[in-house]
Amino acid sequence: MITENGTVIALKDDRAWVQTIRQSACESCSARSGCGQRVLASATSGRANQVLVANTVRARVGDEVTIGIDEQALLGASLIVYALPLFLMVLASIAGHRWSGGADLWAIIGALMGLCAGFFAGRRLQSRQDGRYEPRLLRVNRIASETCI
Rank of each mutant, 00 (worst) to 15 (best):
residue 83 A to V: 04
residue 119 F to V: 03
residue 121 A to Q: 00
residue 129 Q to W: 09
residue 56 T to H: 02
residue 94 I to V: 14
residue 57 V to K: 15
residue 64 E to F: 05
residue 87 F to D: 09
residue 80 I to A: 06
residue 37 Q to F: 13
residue 67 I to Q: 07
residue 111 A to G: 15
residue 133 Y to L: 11
residue 51 V to W: 14
residue 52 L to M: 15
residue 103 A to Y: 11
residue 39 V to R: 15
residue 36 G to C: 07
residue 39 V to E: 14
residue 120 F to P: 13
residue 35 C to D: 10
residue 89 M to Y: 09
residue 49 N to D: 10
residue 133 Y to N: 12
residue 61 V to F: 01
residue 115 L to A: 14
residue 107 A to E: 03
residue 87 F to T: 11
residue 105 L to H: 10
residue 79 L to E: 10
residue 80 I to Q: 02
residue 61 V to G: 02
residue 107 A to Q: 10
residue 96 G to R: 03
residue 34 G to F: 04
residue 67 I to L: 03
residue 127 S to G: 04
residue 92 A to L: 09
residue 28 S to Q: 03
residue 52 L to A: 15
residue 56 T to Q: 07
residue 133 Y to W: 13
residue 50 Q to K: 02
residue 72 Q to D: 11
residue 48 A to L: 01
residue 120 F to N: 10
residue 90 V to P: 05
residue 104 D to A: 13
residue 106 W to V: 04
residue 94 I to T: 05
residue 90 V to E: 08
residue 117 A to Q: 10
residue 93 S to C: 12
residue 57 V to L: 11
residue 122 G to H: 08
residue 113 M to G: 11
residue 91 L to F: 08
residue 42 S to F: 13
residue 88 L to E: 07
residue 88 L to P: 05
residue 112 L to A: 14
residue 53 V to Q: 08
residue 36 G to N: 12
residue 27 E to A: 12
residue 115 L to V: 03
residue 49 N to W: 05
residue 50 Q to L: 05
residue 27 E to M: 08
residue 97 H to Y: 09
residue 85 P to H: 11
residue 77 A to L: 10
residue 75 L to M: 05
residue 76 G to R: 07
residue 128 R to I: 00
residue 95 A to Q: 01
residue 113 M to F: 09
residue 77 A to W: 11
residue 77 A to S: 15
residue 81 V to P: 14
residue 109 I to D: 04
residue 37 Q to I: 06
residue 122 G to M: 10
residue 84 L to G: 01
residue 133 Y to H: 15
residue 77 A to I: 06
residue 32 R to F: 00
residue 124 R to T: 04
residue 68 G to R: 07
residue 107 A to M: 05
residue 130 D to V: 02
residue 95 A to V: 02
residue 60 R to P: 00
residue 128 R to C: 00
residue 34 G to I: 02
residue 26 C to D: 02
residue 47 R to Y: 02
residue 71 E to W: 01
residue 54 A to G: 08
residue 36 G to K: 15
residue 42 S to D: 13
residue 31 A to T: 03
residue 132 R to I: 01
residue 62 G to R: 06
residue 82 Y to E: 12
residue 109 I to W: 02
residue 44 T to K: 15
residue 132 R to N: 03
residue 32 R to A: 06
residue 117 A to P: 07
residue 64 E to I: 12
residue 69 I to C: 13
residue 60 R to C: 05
residue 75 L to F: 12
residue 26 C to V: 00
residue 72 Q to Y: 00
residue 132 R to E: 08
residue 131 G to D: 08
residue 50 Q to E: 11
residue 112 L to V: 05
residue 23 Q to V: 07
residue 48 A to K: 14
residue 108 I to R: 12
residue 101 G to I: 01
residue 106 W to D: 02
residue 113 M to H: 07
residue 83 A to D: 03
residue 33 S to H: 14
residue 108 I to G: 09
residue 52 L to T: 10
residue 78 S to T: 10
residue 110 G to L: 11
residue 37 Q to C: 14
residue 51 V to S: 10
residue 43 A to S: 14
residue 50 Q to F: 01
residue 104 D to V: 04
residue 45 S to V: 12
residue 71 E to Q: 06
residue 133 Y to F: 15
residue 90 V to Q: 05
residue 44 T to R: 15
residue 23 Q to L: 12
residue 91 L to R: 00
residue 43 A to C: 15
residue 32 R to E: 08
residue 115 L to S: 13
residue 116 C to K: 12
residue 41 A to D: 07
residue 55 N to E: 02
residue 109 I to P: 00
residue 98 R to K: 06
residue 45 S to Q: 13
residue 108 I to M: 12
residue 54 A to N: 14
residue 59 A to R: 01
residue 59 A to F: 00
residue 67 I to E: 03
residue 49 N to C: 15
residue 37 Q to Y: 04
